[in-house]
Design a binder for these strands. Structure first.
Length: 649
RNA sequence: GCCGCAGUAGCUCAGCGGUAGAGCAUUCGCUUCGUAAGCGAGUGGUCGGGGGUUCAAAUCCCUCCUGCGGCACCA
């Protein structure tokens, strides 16, 4: 048999050979470094035999692939579980996979793990690595496996054996005295695990991801090829923390939140300035793209929510309002005087659509609203201004005919991609969610809906991935996922086809045939919500916004108080030119003022002293640079105004 | 909502049974200075709310609220 190595060389053997033997034959250095095999593209244990002709790669820590990281992390999870069971006998194991940055293991134990426990577990993990316990795979029959785990008191593992498809082998991995039910592959021994891991935190997690099940204790860790990689990751986490919109929002005085209005935002002047700039920007785009803007009530009678189906399906998330008079009337007329704060704008938009008799000539009707919605989100879901209970959607509904879905979807995609690009997000992904298991409408209808969206994607040249079964019950959808400056993904935009709500709220138009037809609604958003989107912008830019978005665009400041009259003149000129400028004529040293305004992330600092006053110039200092540029006041104004222009205007 | 952790001055945090602290910010003086912290003084807290234990509670216990990290949720 012939084994082809990555360099193209071929080694011949008379019979099956194990990976560690192969590695040893190639060289002692490789034998020592070898972690696992990739046989014809499939990852295998190092000790597994290679039975016939194959392309074989021997993986070491140097291998740049994600496979090696997953291997390390999966092993780290096992080593952690072994450490935990040594330290805390009676603890049961459940699952312990690798994750994007590390691993976790879910345990069953009455006592909660404390942060001190984590330190102990980590220390014991190092001991287990030092022990260099050989790791061995073993296959056994189903009943034996169940008995084995039952005897060990591992009820969850025993239960899981039954879940493994009957055509799959049951494999056990042993390291030292410890064992786990696992498909593998794994490292040849615990000593091969790089000591570049760190336990991060402990949290709750439900057995099999279902909130109805028992809650387990999940211990998270991170693991890397080397100490350097680990340190780089920990540094990245620190960087992320510095970008945190909650921290920057506070530091820059953009907004605050307080317990009397949990999950809501108090926008301060600077934050609201940004908000308005963003709103102005997108409103301009919508107007140019043929949208009309509306405004609908916050508080709407329960009857409408019953008709739309929200009362039945979304009620737990709705704020219900009533008053004394309403209560009195409620007694005699149970159908009225209970209101709800709108959790969505769509039913209200249909009300506007329904005023008067619509013609097919009115379609497509693109109805936009910066609609403030309230949803009672679970307390654990709240997060800064990203996940709130009162938020403003950049919402719109496109009322159109079936035939218009494709063209409208293409048009929307163009609008959205242009806006993302102008905001500094070059890179975004599209996910296509198709019919879910529980859904309204027959398959023929879904075929048409999905077909129209697929066609739109094709026409617009959209590269998308499928998200099977994740569509709304009323229709398929596209989701637009942004990638920010440090590679995190954020789902913001959405385009959803809906044929249920027009039916429920009886929207109709008269077609060219003179008969009444049901319009289709396209629910669509680009930011998703202003609150969340601003949070993403804050984190994307670390608060160092492009000029047009910056709450304070420029500060004029003086070297000495002699320059104050000229500084006032410069400030007034900026303000009159439409720039958001502050004036700082305090008595502090210029170094102090530069530091202050740099920390406040003011993009442009205009420094003036005697020289500038005399020559009618300004000295410009940009945030993030210590270079100075001297310009005539008039030129500086023109330059800044052009830089501060809202994108696309 | 669930599990764990936390809440002390405007901010960041120390104190963890025995009279509430620091730095920064703020206020007031002085300083007029050329690009990331001049000097000095003062003000500032029912130690998240409520209850309990104790001679004595920021500190220990119970409970509620809020936040943080996950889980679940996010038409």
């Amino acid at each position: 048999m012939a084994i082809t190595l990555p360099d193209g060389s071929v080694r011949r053997y008379d019979g099956p050979v194990t990976g560690d033997k192969l590695a040893a034959d190639i060289g002692p250095g490789l034998a020592k470094a070898a972690l696992a095999l990739r046989v014809n593209g499939t990852l295998k244990d190092l000790k597994s035999p290679i039975a016939g002709d194959a392309k074989v790669e021997i993986l070491t820590l140097k291998d740049p692939s994600q496979d090696v990281l997953e291997l390390i992390r999966h092993d780290a999870a096992h080593v952690m579980a072994e450490a935990v069971q040594e330290l805390y006998p009676g603890t049961q194991i459940t699952f312990g996979p690798s994750t994007e940055t590390g691993f976790y293991y879910d345990f069953v134990r009455d006592e909660p793990f404390t942060p001190e426990d984590l330190a102990k577990i980590e220390a014991r993990m190092r001991e287990i690595v030092a022990r260099d316990e050989p790791i061995a795979r073993e296959e056994m029959d189903r009943d034996a496996a169940v008995r084995l785990f039952q005897d060990l008191g591992e009820k969850y593992k025993a239960e899981w054996v039954h879940e493994i498809p009957t055509d799959e082998a049951i494999s056990i991995y042993r390291q030292g005295k410890w064992l786990d039910l696992c498909v593998g592959p794994h490292l040849p021994s615990t000593g091969k695990l790089p000591v570049a891991f760190k336990l991060m935190r402990v949290s709750g997690a439900y057995w099999r991801g279902d909130a109805k099940n028992q809650q387990l204790q999940r211990v998270y860790g991170t693991a890397w090829r080397s100490k350097q990689e680990l340190d780089a990751y920990l540094t990245l986490l620190e960087e992320q923390e510095k970008r945190d919109h909650r921290r920057i929002g506070k530091e820059m005085g953009l907004f605050h939140q307080q317990e009397e209005a949990a999950g809501m935002v108090f926008w301060h002047p600077k934050g609201w300035t940004m908000y308005r700039a963003l709103e102005r920007f997108i409103r301009g785009r919508l107007e140019r793209d043929g949208y009309v803007e509306v405004k609908t009530p916050q508080l709407v009678d329960r009857k409408l929510w019953e008709a739309s189906g929200h009362w039945e399906k979304f009620r737990e998330n709705m704020y219900i309002a009533e008053n004394e008079e309403g209560l009195k009337e409620f007694v005699t007329d149970p159908a009225s005087r209970i209101f709800a704060l709108k959790p969505m704008n769509c039913p209200c938009h249909v009300q506007i659509f329904n005023q008067g008799l619509r013609s097919y000539r009115d379609l497509p009707l693109r109805m936009a609203e910066f609609g403030s919605c309230h949803r009672f989100e679970p307390s654990g879901a709240l997060h800064g201004i990203m996940r709130v209970r009162n938020f403003t959607q950049d919402d719109a509904h496109i009322f159109c005919s079936f035939d218009q879905i494709e063209a409208e979807s293409v048009r929307f995609y163009k609008l959205l991609s242009g806006i993302y690009r102008d905001l500094g997000f070059e890179d975004f992904k599209v996910k296509f969610s198709d019919r879910p298991a529980v859904r309204a409408g027959d398959d023929a209808l879904w075929d048409r809906m999905e077909g129209a969206l697929h066609a739109a994607c094709k026409t617009a040249g959209i590269d998308y991935t499928m998200n099977p079964g994740e569509g709304a019950f009323y229709g398929p959808k596209l989701e637009f996922v942004l990638r920010d400056a440090i590679g995190r993904d954020w789902q913001c935009g959405t385009l959803q086809v809906d044929f249920v709500l027009p039916e429920r709220l009886d929207a109709e138009y008269v077609g060219p045939d003179g008969a009444k037809h049901r319009p289709v609604m396209l629910h669509r958003a680009i930011f998703g919500s202003f609150e969340r989107f601003i949070a993403i912008l804050i984190e994307h830019y670390t608060g160092k916004f492009p000029l047009w978005l910056a709450p304070v665009q420029a500060v004029v400041t003086t070297i000495t108080s002699d320059a104050e009259p000229y500084a006032r003149k410069v400030h007034q000129a900026l303000t009159e030119a439409g720039l958001r400028a502050d004036l700082d004529v305090g008595p502090e040293k210029i170094t102090y003022k530069v530091r202050e305004h740099s920390l406040a992330k003011v993009p442009v600092l205009l420094v003036v002293g005697a020289r500038e006053a005399e020559q009618e110039t300004v000295s410009i200092r940009r945030l993030g640079s210590n270079a100075q540029e001297s310009l005539a006041l008039r030129d500086a104004l023109a330059k800044l105004c052009s830089e501060a222009r809202v994108p696309g205007t």
